[in-house]
């Protein structure tokens, strides 16, 4: 309940923050604080320096010209309340399922991407929407596709001195058929399994499909075999069932705990993929 002592730094620019991170290997970025502070309270995390980026101007806000560019410090609540994300209804629906109202008032989308919790909701959504993040570090600014961002348990491909400044959703799946479906852990509310699907169609056939799965794998991953099983097909019950049956095939070793075994998680991935696709298809 009581964090260890640390040095608190509140830079006023991203560059200043990067400088501190680069010169201080024991530093951690504090965004909304809803992953870091709980870990520090339980003394599971004990950074020597906490870099509070909460007062840096320009990191929050949503720009919806050509897809959506969401500032890293944009809170979940701001996403839910935004009228600029109408092209991506799944994002709003999924964000409503993150944590609880108080958590959504503080937690940020950038923090969620950087923390890469294996049971986070928006990691799967961003995979399905083919999103990327803009990261800035000593070496400059770069764009990292979320496909390449999530690399391990609570691990991203970002360098120690890199800060996510925005999450970028391309136009690929704007107004596409999409849905996020979740089986929430009864206590934590995190995803035991969450499945995000986005499907575009051309001439009545699936042109492009992306499926992001969270909760079950080590980190949010795509169900590529299921995606392939959809492509070129009519999005009907039969296609959906066939694709859903493959949804747990590409996820590697699955998580298990006292609430849900790996076997059950695999089953839920299939069930929820079917549900999500059915919902997205409007069947």
């Amino acid at each position: 309940m009581y964090p260890q002592q640390f040095e608190y730094v509140r830079p006023s620019s991203v560059d200043e923050a990067i400088g501190i991170l680069a010169s201080n290997p024991d530093a951690k970025v504090l965004a909304g604080g809803h992953s870091l502070i709980p870990a520090m309270k339980l003394r599971l995390a004990a950074p020597g320096t906490v870099v509070d980026i909460g007062k840096i101007d320009g990191l929050a806000g949503i720009d919806s010209r050509g897809g959506a560019k969401i500032g890293a410090m944009t809170t979940y609540a701001a996403i839910v309340d935004s009228d600029k994300l109408g092209d991506f209804p799944m994002l709003t629906e999924a964000t409503k399922q993150v944590g609880d109202p108080s958590v959504r008032n503080r937690g940020t989308i950038g923090g969620s991407m950087a923390h890469n919790d294996p049971a986070a909701d928006l990691t799967a959504v961003m995979l399905a929407l083919n999103a990327s993040v803009t990261a800035k570090g000593k070496g400059g600014e770069r764009e990292v596709a979320v496909d390449d961002l999530f690399v391990g348990l609570l691990t991203t491909s970002l360098a120690e001195d890199e800060i996510i400044t925005s999450v970028n959703i391309p136009n690929d799946f704007a107004n596409a058929k999409q849905a996020y479906v979740k089986h929430a852990h009864p206590a934590s509310g995190y995803a035991v399994v969450g499945v995000a699907v986005a499907v575009t169609e051309k001439d009545g056939k699936v042109e492009s499909a992306r499926i992001g799965v969270t909760g079950a794998p080590e980190h949010a991953k795509r169900a590529t075999s299921a995606e392939a099983a959809l492509t070129g097909k009519t999005l009907d019950a039969e296609t959906i069932a066939a694709a859903a049956a493959l949804a747990a095939d590409d996820l590697g070793e699955l998580n298990g705990d006292v609430y849900a075994s790996p076997e059950y998680r695999a089953h839920l991935v299939r069930v929820l993929t079917k549900r999500a696709l059915t919902q997205a298809a409007g069947l």
């Binding site: 339980l42 852990h185 009864p186 206590a187 934590s188 995190y190 705990d257 006292v258």
Partner: peptide
């Protein structure tokens, strides 16, 4: 439906917080 306290074989409580042990919401 929800609650159950579990220990592993080493006697560690696996449901040691309110984010693991599900009192109802």
């Amino acid at each position: 439906l929800y609650e159950g306290a579990y220990y592993d074989d080493d006697g560690q409580l696996l449901t040691g917080s309110l984010s693991d042990y599900a009192i109802p919401k």
